[in-house]
Amino acid sequence: MIDKYKKESRYSIQEILNRPFARIPSSLEHEFHSYQKDQIFKFLLQVNILAQCAYVFYSIADWYILADVGLLAVWLKLSYTALISLVTVLIYTFSRSLKLFDLMLPLSIIGAAAIWFYLLNLSHSPDTPIYLYASLIFVVLANLCVQIRFIPAVVISLIISAVIYTGVYCVVNADWHQIKLFSLIYTPVFMFSLYISWTSTQKSKMLFLHSKLDEINCQALNIIAHPDVLTGLHNRHQFTQLAEQEIQSAQKFAHPICLLMFDVDEFKKINDSYGYDIGDQVLQQIAETSSNILRANDVLARFGGEEFIMLLPRAHLEQTRKIAERLRKAIANSHLITDDGTKLQYTISIGIAEFSVQNPDLNSVIKRADEALYQAKKNGRNQTRGYQPFKP
């Protein structure tokens, strides 16, 4: 069966996916980071390296545009790029921290932006006021590869913006008209960059949650699709699904519905005396005999081990008792021939319970049938007992 944890996870994921903003439950955070590491770790490395290459390219442009500080620009930017690239490779190789790696590029851009405006402030090039607009690329790059944590990306983007505005303020000599013009261009780019990181982080969460939901549903379908291997009957999960449908139908149309549980008497002794292969043959023969007694709408399943369960829609308690007795006698009259020629006969004990109109809970009825089965065992085995009193 799908365990309780997975059922709760499925309901939790479905609820989150129906909300406008996805949020990873704390119970799935570790799996989310592991999933993201498999999906995007190499991508983050590639983006970081490409960003450093772009920064190097700008140092070449500095050589021509900021000629008076061109040599210093090339030296500073190449040194910084080499340092950041080394740290990036070390984190990728040894740390493997996805949270840190996800923010590696935005963090490195803080220093890159500071160097950029330091050089612009030193230069006396007439192109400096125009060249400072190229700094828009910093906040875009910072948010381009963020995949898992949006709030830290916002904080870092604000720090980058503070560095940029400080640099602009110094380059334009506190000319508020120039600062306003810069803001008119920078603000929509800033908002757009945050939108990029927002959609990226939401998309990564949604992809993971859909993947996790598909995994859980696939496991459930596999369980439902495969009957009990030994007997060919429904498995426990299949029985639960079919029984719930029959219970709903019985409620809707006010039909009676009963349940019986039965298992092999002294099955351990059979296994110990004749071996597990013979024990398996006993279970297979019981499954075949039980199937022959089934009515059209009855639901039969192997409940576990040597225990079987049967749901009988449209059957009152007395009618169920007659079916149970017919089953018990048919199995008592059957036998197996063992490898040494021994004729092996075996019996079952049966417990019966009827669904209450006021409380048609499947688990409660199973519990009552199991208690009736216990009474049948206690009273000598090879008999039928009902949870509600009736004459045997």
Rank of each mutant, 00 (worst) to 15 (best):
K6Q: 14
N18L: 14
N18E: 13
R19G: 10
R19T: 09
F32K: 08
K42L: 15
F43L: 12
L44P: 02
L45C: 11
Y64A: 05
Y64S: 11
L71Q: 11
S79G: 14
Y80G: 00
T81H: 00
L83G: 07
I84V: 15
F94W: 11
L98R: 02
D102S: 07
P106L: 05
I109W: 01
I110F: 03
A112C: 06
H124I: 06
D127Y: 12
T128A: 15
A134V: 11
A134H: 09
L144E: 01
C145V: 10
I148H: 02
I151L: 12
P152Y: 09
I156P: 09
I156V: 15
S161L: 06
A162L: 14
A162V: 14
A162S: 11
Y169A: 09
C170A: 13
V172N: 12
N173V: 02
N173F: 05
H177W: 07
I185W: 02
L194H: 06
W198H: 13
T199W: 07
S200V: 03
K203E: 09
K203M: 10
S204L: 04
L209P: 09
L209H: 12
H210F: 08
H210M: 10
S211M: 04
C218M: 13
C218S: 13
L221E: 14
N222T: 08
C258S: 15
E266C: 08
S273F: 05
Q281C: 01
I286H: 09
E288D: 14
S290P: 02
N292Y: 08
N292W: 01
L294D: 07
E306F: 04
E318K: 05
E318W: 09
E318A: 06
Q319S: 13
R321A: 01
K322Y: 13
A330R: 01
I331T: 04
D339K: 13
G341P: 02
T342G: 03
Q345K: 15
I350M: 11
I350H: 09
S364Y: 10
V365L: 07
K377N: 04
N379F: 05
G380W: 03
